[in-house]
């Protein structure tokens, strides 16, 4: 993957430094949310697969880490505020075990649903656009959560590994979830290289992606990473079923249907593991983690709402 296109003054300055290796841009502010999100996304990607046009040692460059930190502080504060607003509408019942609380929140939450639209009404072009947007995450599916593994005690660690092992195909590359998504993309005539569609990604998709990296890369936010995982899994089985029905309605290729069909059954098990066993063990051992777990749950829900609102509005406008 090469660096994406800049979206404002900060990403412009940052990307030219990343390419040339000069001193990191100090004192350049983000011009808008897109600019901040693509800058942060690119700094995070240095920790995943990197860029062909950026030197490998940029990953731990202290000046770049300083830019990343500044962006993270703003982004984390924004996420915290959005999660707090969610908590006003959907308060937690602290008497409930955390697993029950996660299911109660994800079931009570009402938001716009892309899966519903795909099931009933989406055109093939809209589905292809959605696959391109989703590819920003699905081509590194499960990776942000893997950062959390060495930070856990034995019980949540063992349970998380059971879940991740399934995401990674249980050792069979052809069953690895990001490989299943690649095959789905190719079957629809899309490009499947990592990062192929980042320039098209709407800011809401970049922020959704950045939240997972933020939670994954900071040990302090390990509870949020696992709460996000639990909410993600707990909002997957039934919507994945609706997506398979929409794809079949449109006569789309079996490979892409298979990606979603796999998630109906896989995530029915993953949601139980993530909410009850992984988050349950984390919070049992350290009750102060409950708040962090719920931050991750709420962040997952509000960020997906933002993606759905954006895509549905965009399609409505062009309908």
């Amino acid at each position: 993957m090469r660096l994406p296109k800049a979206r404002g003054a900060l990403s412009d300055a940052l990307f030219s430094v990343l390419r040339s290796g000069g001193p990191a841009p100090a004192g350049v502010a983000a011009e808008n949310r897109d600019d901040a999100a693509i800058a942060l996304w690119s700094l995070y990607e240095l920790h995943y697969r990197g860029f062909e046009d950026v030197a490998e040692d940029a990953e731990w460059d202290p000046d770049l880490l300083r830019v990343r930190r500044t962006l993270e502080v703003g982004f984390e504060a924004d996420l915290g505020a959005r999660a707090a607003a969610h908590a006003e509408t959907y308060p937690d019942d602290p008497q409930r075990p955390v697993g029950d609380a996660i299911f109660a929140l994800t079931e009570a939450h009402e938001g716009p649903s892309l899966a519903d639209h795909v099931q009933r009404a989406a055109s093939e072009d809209q589905v292809l656009e959605l696959l391109r947007q989703r590819s920003v995450y699905h081509l590194k599916e499960a990776d942000p959560t893997s950062w959390v593994i060495p930070r856990l005690e034995a019980e949540p660690k063992a349970a998380l590994l059971e879940l991740q092992f399934d995401e990674y195909g249980c050792g069979r590359v052809e069953q690895l979830h990001h490989r299943l998504f690649e095959r789905g993309m190719i079957s629809c005539g899309l490009r499947a290289e990592y990062g192929a569609y980042v320039d098209e990604a709407v800011v809401e998709v970049l922020e959704q992606n950045n939240a997972m990296s933020l939670f994954g890369l900071h040990r302090r936010l390990r509870g949020a990473a696992l709460g996000h995982l639990a909410a993600f899994e707990a909002t997957s089985s039934l919507p994945s079923r609706r997506v398979t029905q929409g794809l079949e309605r449109l006569g789309m290729a079996p490979e892409v249907v298979h990606y979603y069909a796999e998630h109906v059954e896989a995530d029915a098990a993953h949601e139980q593991l993530a909410a009850r066993i992984i988050c349950g063990a984390l919070v049992d051992a350290d009750p102060t983690q409950r708040e962090s777990v719920l931050l991750g749950v709420r962040a997952c829900l509000v960020l997906e709402d933002a993606v759905a609102t954006r895509m549905l509005a965009q399609w409505e406008a062009t309908a």
């Binding site: 399934d166 089985s237 029915a268 098990a269």
Partner: peptide, 25 residues
């Protein structure tokens, strides 16, 4: 086929015998 499998107990799954989340409805 997976490390942990969810078996339906509510009798309403469309993927029986496996759970597909329908119990939540």
């Amino acid at each position: 086929t997976r490390p942990v499998t969810a078996v339906c107990r509510c009798g309403k799954s469309q993927s029986a015998p496996w759970c597909d989340g329908t119990h939540k409805l």
